[in-house]
Amino acid sequence: MSLEKIGDPRDLTHWMGHMETDYSYTYGIAGEKFFKELKENAKIMGTRCKNCNLIYVPPRLFCERCFEKLDTWETVSKRGSVHTYTIANIDIDGSKLKKPIIWAMIKIDNVHGGFVHKLGEVDSKDVEIGMHVEAVFKSRKEREGSMLDIKYFRPAKQKLEKALR
């Protein structure tokens, strides 16, 4: 280990600064439509690139592969599969979380993309790569048109999973 003393910089002579940065981030055309549908109809929308034959979720107005303008909107599935996951045991301030958060990259079925979101209604021991999950929405009254309108993703119900096959 280093022999350098690890000191709290606040113990040295210093000037305490605080970076205050409030922002209003504009959703833009694609975001506006996506979050309106999410809020009003609990629907997930994507935009299709006809050149690349891909549906982008979250939607964008341009294709990152061929740079084509995208104006074909599609309603996509609320289900997907866990592409990868992790279990976070600490919060942003470094403190231990009482209840660990299971984060996952969820690839929505039949689209290019999906969401990085939380998993719920599942024990972390039972999570695995490839498992099928579905979005759980807040009630209509609670939804505000943000990513928080999706509470989390949970293991897809068995019978629906079968019906999809």
Binding site: H83, T84, Y85, T86, I90, I92, W103, I129
Partner: peptide, 15 residues
């Protein structure tokens, strides 16, 4: 969604 951003490293490592 909040959280400590290093969850991204956990996701990448696992994959």
């Amino acid at each position: 969604l909040g959280g400590h951003p290093f969850y991204i490293a956990g996701l990448e490592m696992n994959r």
